[in-house]
């Protein structure tokens, strides 16, 4: 191992992240090289200095505080749930729920009947009639399309540049 490689691995060595073989080479070189020792010591001094930050301990009642907080929050959730239940799960609202159910049922039955009717009509139609239905929008605008000479106009617009060149 050379000095350059050792210096690039100092942090990994301190973090215990070097492979076993690299770790051994690192230690051997460090033991024999005064310059590398100096670089290593400088970095290690800063690293060791971080150790001075004090540790703190939680207050002795942290566990009971925790369970009290859990209970308080649980109460809030329970109260909210109870209030919602009171609001929506009450006999007074039964007519509203029944009306809603009836309305939804009527709507669903009506849609189903319309769908069945359309299917029957479609089954009785010939292929030509089906195509007409598919292009119904074009049929609606047929008179308008027939009146304008669209394709002739389009050709004139497309060749406008050529025409102006010829004129000049």
């Amino acid at each position: 191992m050379d000095c350059k490689r050792l210096k690039s691995q100092i942090y990994e060595y301190l973090d215990n992240e070097l492979q076993e073989a690299d770790m051994q080479q690192f230690s051997e070189h460090l033991g024999a090289c005064a310059e590398c020792q100096k670089a290593y010591e400088a970095i290690k001094r800063t690293w060791d200095a971080l150790e001075v930050l004090p540790n703190v301990e939680p207050t002795p009642n942290y566990m009971s505080r925790f369970w009290a907080e859990v209970a308080t929050r649980q109460n809030v959730v329970d109260r909210a749930r109870a209030r919602l239940s009171q609001m929506f799960l009450t006999w007074k609202l039964v007519p509203v729920y029944v009306s809603l159910c009836l309305a939804i049922s009527v709507f669903a039955i009506r849609n189903y009947m319309q769908f069945e009717q359309s299917r029957q009509i479609l089954a009785e139609m010939s292929q030509e009639e089906i195509e007409m239905v598919e292009y119904i929008e074009l049929a609606e605008n047929y008179e308008l399309i027939d009146e304008i000479e669209f394709f002739e106009d389009f050709e004139i617009i497309q060749n406008l540049d050529d025409l102006s060149v010829t004129q000049s």
Partner: peptide, 9 residues
């Protein structure tokens, strides 16, 4: 300490 309580909650 308060934030640690939050972590555990």
């Amino acid at each position: 300490e308060d934030l640690t309580q939050e972590v555990f909650i």
